[in-house]
Amino acid sequence: MTTAPTPVPTPAATDPGGGPGASRTASSPTPAGRVPAARRGLRGGTWLATVPLLAFFAIGFGLPAVAILTGAFTVSSDAETGGGDFTTANLTESVQGAYWTALLSSLKLSALTALIGTAVGVPIAQAVVTSRFRMLREAVLTASGVLANFGGLPLAFAFVATLGNAGELTELFHLTDHGWSLYSFTGLTVAYLYFLVPLMVLTITPALDGLRVQWREAAQNNRATTLQYWRHVALPILFPSLLGGYVLLFGSAFAAYATAAAMVGATVPLISRQIADALSGNVLVGQGNLALALSLDMIIVAILVMAVYLPLQRRSARWLS
């Protein structure tokens, strides 16, 4: 009588639960929750790579911010008495009288130019995105990148030579007879649009590129018109990007200084001009800390702008990524 061989138990059969009797090999997976040493080293290297950037940010932005915050709440050292003492008079004065008028004028100019820049820039960007000519797209985007950074004295000189009282276009079309004046709120608005519209084109083009063809095809399959597609599909998706672009244009116009200073001077009251006058002592001596208080007002507005802009960018990125 032949007997069957006794089967040899395997490690899995011996201890199916992976207990002390289970076989462990060198190729066993890494336990959950533990990061491999190579990845930990990579993360450490990444943080080390950001140290120069963080140091530059601390020196270039952190120290000036601390100096502005400290100076805004202290008496100027140029004052006759109480230099260096704590006070809230600077902030109180910065939102009164001519300074408050200048702040409101800056907010009005920024809001208006940002609105017009958004309304004009979006159709241009849409035409570029839907164009079949690649060279046209590249040319418009390249020009927008250049013009978005073309400001300050060169821009003011270009507008004075073109649309000033003795400018080429002013004399050619007799604009002065129709009430045109470059050195006014309207003229400054036109000058600001020269760099705000290209900035909007650069800002909104990636969002328009993110609109998927399948969404338009699905709308057409459901017999939706072009207007219905933009109203119910495209615009709700683009709304965070549009609002974010508007906020970005608002911040750029609010912080602009050189163009207005060279073109209109004190004709149009702006908060940036008031800061320059207080620092240089054009009006009163010893107003340096008042200028810091005005700068703090601008920083607060910038923080509010960024508080709106960043969440909108994250929200639109979810749809357009």
Score class of each variant (00 low, 15 high):
residue 83 G to D: 11
residue 71 G to E: 05
residue 304 L to W: 04
residue 251 G to P: 03
residue 142 T to N: 10
residue 194 Y to G: 05
residue 295 S to N: 09
residue 29 P to S: 12
residue 299 I to A: 15
residue 21 G to Y: 14
residue 12 A to F: 15
residue 158 A to W: 00
residue 229 Y to W: 15
residue 17 G to P: 03
residue 126 Q to A: 15
residue 94 S to A: 09
residue 223 R to S: 14
residue 233 V to Q: 11
residue 285 V to D: 13
residue 58 A to E: 12
residue 129 V to A: 02
residue 91 L to Q: 03
residue 320 L to T: 09
residue 185 F to D: 06
residue 189 T to Y: 03
residue 253 A to R: 03
residue 41 G to D: 08
residue 30 T to G: 04
residue 128 V to E: 07
residue 126 Q to I: 13
residue 147 L to N: 01
residue 261 A to S: 14
residue 37 A to C: 09
residue 233 V to H: 14
residue 321 S to Q: 14
residue 90 N to E: 06
residue 51 V to G: 08
residue 156 A to E: 01
residue 315 R to L: 04
residue 232 H to C: 12
residue 60 G to Y: 10
residue 273 R to C: 03
residue 60 G to A: 15
residue 16 P to L: 05
residue 16 P to D: 04
residue 174 H to Y: 13
residue 306 M to P: 02
residue 30 T to Q: 14
residue 205 T to D: 07
residue 139 A to Y: 02
residue 233 V to M: 03
residue 29 P to I: 00
residue 126 Q to C: 12
residue 299 I to W: 07
residue 233 V to F: 08
residue 285 V to W: 10
residue 268 V to S: 01
residue 105 S to C: 02
residue 137 R to S: 08
residue 51 V to Q: 01
residue 219 A to V: 06
residue 208 L to F: 11
residue 79 A to S: 14
residue 309 Y to M: 10
residue 217 E to G: 00
residue 168 E to R: 14
residue 71 G to K: 05
residue 16 P to R: 03
residue 189 T to N: 02
residue 158 A to R: 00
residue 109 L to W: 01
residue 319 W to G: 08
residue 85 D to C: 09
residue 206 P to D: 01
residue 198 P to C: 01
residue 1 M to F: 14
residue 252 S to Q: 13
residue 4 A to W: 09
residue 166 A to N: 15
residue 188 L to F: 02
residue 254 F to W: 04
residue 202 L to S: 07
residue 120 V to H: 06
residue 73 F to S: 12
residue 316 S to Y: 04
residue 289 N to A: 08
residue 271 I to V: 13
residue 42 L to V: 13
residue 309 Y to D: 07
residue 222 N to D: 08
residue 200 M to F: 10
residue 279 L to Q: 07
residue 162 T to P: 04
residue 77 S to H: 11
residue 194 Y to N: 11
residue 223 R to E: 13
residue 40 R to I: 13
residue 250 F to V: 06
residue 204 I to Y: 08
residue 307 A to K: 09
residue 69 L to W: 10
